[in-house]
Structures are given as C-alpha cells and as structure tokens.
C-alpha cells in the first residue's frame, strides 16, 4: 500500500444475509486529501460501500486496507482498534434521524468525544466550538425532533466535526434539503477539501461532483464499479451515466419545439 493511500479495496464484495448482493468485486484506492464521489442510482450499493469504508461492515470477500492495516471482522471486534479507527474516519449518514439518537443537540454533538474518552472539560470546548462554527449554538438544548431537516443535517455534521476526523464519508449529503442548505453543504465539502481532508461522497446528485470533486467512481446497477475517472471525463460520458441510471431522457418543450434528450436536473 502506498504511503499516502488512505483506503484500498481489492476485489471486495459484501452481501446481506448471504444472498442479497450489496457490492461486488470492488477495486478502489483513495489517497490522502482527495475528494471523491461515488456515483450510483438507488440500490447500487453506495451506502453499503461507505459503511464498509467506515469499518461498520467487514467484507465477505476480498481485502480492505485502511491507513496501511487490514480491516476485517477480527480487527473490528478489537474495541481499542475500532475506537482509533473511528477517531480517524467519520460518517455522516443520509438520514439524520438515524444519526441523531439522543434527546438534545448538545448531547448528540458530545456523544463522539465522550465515547472517545476525552476529558469532560475538553468535550465542552469541542462541542461549543463545533456548534458555534456551524451556527447551531442557540439550538443546543433543543430536541432533534424539533429541528428542520436542514438543521438536523447540520447537527449530524457537527456530531462528526467534534472528532475532527482525517476522513469524511458523506452519504447523500444534499438529499431532502432545501436549496440554501444544499449550497451550505457543498461549501462545507469544499472547505474540507481546502483543509486537506480526505472526503468520500456517495450520491446520485451530479451537482456535487460537478462543483466539489476531482475523481468519480460510478457504481452500476449490478453493484460493480462501472468506471473510474476524472469528474470532468465522467460527467461527459452520457452513455455511462445513462447506463448507471444517473441521467434520464424525456420530452421537453423548448419554445414551441418538443424534443427528447439525455440530461439531469440541478
């Protein structure tokens, strides 16, 4: 494994309950400081791939290396190893209701540093800092069910920010958000990139790779990697995007002329 390689997957497959294929024969390399998009339609295995990169699942087949070490069932069962791994890698789940499981915003954001064993004084500091940075401090005593979707997404991000992980994994970060919050999330990803963080974004929204990533992997509907390449090249491959169900075609009326062409909306 190269020195600056953060993740390396060799012929990795993962099945749910033995016969439900989630990802198949994935070869992937992610280097330090890269911002990468994993593109794919619903059900292509993007979320599973992120959970695998976050050490939540171990591959059924193939080899997964992170930070130069092999990650498998045995290493993930080691509590010290698991804690160290999760200090370095943070995952923002697609659904904030999954991620926000505690009764108040403050407790939610404090959860990770507390589990990591930080002293309580330090926890207070990092939580206040994260809430202030994301302009959430005034919501600290609120319950997550009293927040808007945009606020929930920000709290989800804050709950990972307190760990200041080297690697950020984001699952459909702009899904179900209003345009202003979508813009905020994209700006946040760009900031991570500027700070030299490694960021992996799973999405079917082509706006994100367009503005925030340099490299894309496209997952096909057969759960295998269809193609890997520069964002510019991938976004210009209409055949691949159509095959991966990332763009579509239907009738349009432009002025008085109706015609059909391949496109996506953003």
């Amino acid at each position: 494994m190269e020195n600056n390689c953060v993740f390396e997957l060799r012929d990795v497959s993962f099945d749910y309950m033995e016969n439900v294929h989630a990802i198949e024969s994935i070869d992937l390399k992610i280097h330090k400081g890269e911002t990468i998009a994993i593109l794919g339609a619903n059900g292509s295995g993007k979320s599973t791939l992120l959970k695998l990169l976050d050490g939540l699942y171990a591959p059924n087949k193939g080899e997964f290396q992170a930070f130069g070490s092999i990650i498998n069932e045995t290493t993930l069962r080691d509590k010290k190893m698991a804690r160290e791994f999760h200090r370095k890698v943070g995952l923002v789940f697609q659904d904030p209701d999954v991620q926000l499981f505690l009764p108040t915003v403050w407790d939610e954001v404090a959860f990770a540093p507390l589990q990591m064993g930080l002293p309580k004084q330090k926890v207070t500091e990092v939580v206040s800092e994260a809430l202030t940075q994301l302009e959430l401090y005034h919501l600290k005593d609120r319950a997550p069910y009293h927040l808007s979707e945009g606020e929930k997404k920000k709290v989800s991000i804050a709950s990972v920010l307190t760990l200041d992980p080297e690697v950020w994994l984001m699952d459909e970060p702009t899904a179900s958000l209003d345009p202003r919050t979508q813009g905020w999330v994209i700006d946040f990803i760009l900031e991570l990139s500027e700070k030299g963080k490694t960021t992996v974004i799973a999405t079917h929204d082509l706006e994100i790779p367009h503005v925030a990533t340099n490299v894309c992997y496209v997952l096909g509907q057969d759960h295998k990697i269809l193609v890997k390449g520069s964002t510019h090249d991938i976004l210009n491959r209409e055949d691949i995007l159509l095959q991966a169900n990332l763009i579509h075609q239907h009738r349009h009326v432009h002025a008085n002329v109706a015609h059909t062409h391949k496109h996506w909306h953003y």
Binding site: K51, D54, L56, K79, A82, R83, H86, R87, G90, L91, F93, D95, V98, Q99, F101, D107, A110, F111, A112, L114, Q115, M116, G117, K120, V123, T124, S159, V160, L163
Partner: peptide
Amino acid sequence: EVHLAMTSRGWTGNPTLMDD
C-alpha cells in the same frame, strides 16, 4: 441503522454521559 451510527462515532458498548 442507529446502532451503526453509534458505532461510527465510537460506541463500544460502554456509554459515557456528561452532567453539568
């Protein structure tokens, strides 16, 4: 899913809470 989200943020089965 919630269990995965907890594990992702360092949960190893021993909760730590804070009082102020």
